[in-house]
Amino acid sequence: MYFGTYLSLVLTTFFWGATFIAGRSLAGAVPPATAAFFRFTIASAALLILCRLIDGRLTVPPPRLWFSLFLLGLTGVFSYNICFFTGLHYIEAGRASLIIALNPLAITLFASLLLKEPLAPRQFIGVIVSLIGALFVISNGHPSVIYNGDFGKGELAILGCVASWATYSLVGRSVLKTMTPLSAVFYSSVIGSLLLLLPALREGSLIEAVNYSTLTIGNLAFLGLCGTAIGFSLYYQAIRKIGATRSGVFINLVPFFAIILSWLILGESIKPVVLSGGVLVLAGVTLTNMPTRKNTAIAPQQLSSRQ
């Protein structure tokens, strides 16, 4: 009955998994802020069209929401993508995807620490399991590196993605009470693009876009169109048809696709111990975010993915 919806969710997670490969491919070719600026400029134009097609119109935010939308652009677009492209300059795409798989866990922890939302025993166990797995993923199989405080810029940058997305998702709660998800993503994308313009100009490489290779242009277009605009629209249409809970289960496919594609396209490989840590991360995240009877609306992490 919902075969088409499930197929669209698989396609969406495939797109999101492939963003890690596109981002890794851009490393060295386009500076982080410039890559992010082009990605979300493309995404903003596509989202404007999709908002009109899917929502029927573009909702104008009330004045009280503009500060929240600014925070969404600052965290979910600006800081997330600076960290994303910086991190992929240093570490493998597959391992980065396993670290970013901590997003739902970080949202749960932020909500507990900042908003005083209680953790059920099951959620607490899930947190512990995920953190154990994260030790092996972040340290590339050498947890002692973390204990010594000696791990690289790439890992720190990808952890910055996780912190940025957790903040973005929690701020998005208030916005989603008034605006449609696609409209919220559109405005945050536009604001984030404007915030990215200045650091992109400082990198001094915007004008070099005229000399970009076909592969570089293709990667930027893929990130903006498939990884952001089309991915979000397919995902939110699925939420409307089968609900946030069943749609959210498919998020676990993102690192799977990222690892497979990084092996096929980039020739990357992941240590078995790191892969085992990734399995623990996903198991703990699943346990932490298992639906409860009260959890029937769009959960805070459903404002994303993984971009």
Results as ranks from 00 to 15, higher is better:
G141V: 09
G141A: 03
H142K: 15
P143L: 06
S144R: 12
S144I: 11
V145K: 14
I146P: 05
I146G: 00
Y147L: 15
N148Y: 11
G149N: 08
F151Y: 15
F151K: 11
G152A: 07
G152T: 08
G154E: 06
E155W: 10
L156I: 13
I158A: 04
L159Y: 07
V162C: 09
A163Y: 06
W165P: 01
W165Y: 14
W165M: 12
A166K: 07
A166Y: 04
A166M: 10
A166R: 06
T167Q: 12
S169M: 05
S169D: 06
S169Y: 00
S169C: 09
R173K: 15
R173Q: 14
S174P: 03
V175E: 01
L176A: 12
K177M: 01
T178C: 08
T178W: 04
T180R: 15
S183G: 14
A184L: 12
A184F: 10
Y187F: 13
S188L: 09
S189D: 02
V190L: 13
S193K: 12
L194Y: 06
L195D: 04
L198V: 14
L198H: 10
P199D: 03
P199S: 01
A200R: 00
A200F: 08
L201E: 07
L201D: 02
R202S: 12
S205K: 14
S205A: 14
I207E: 11
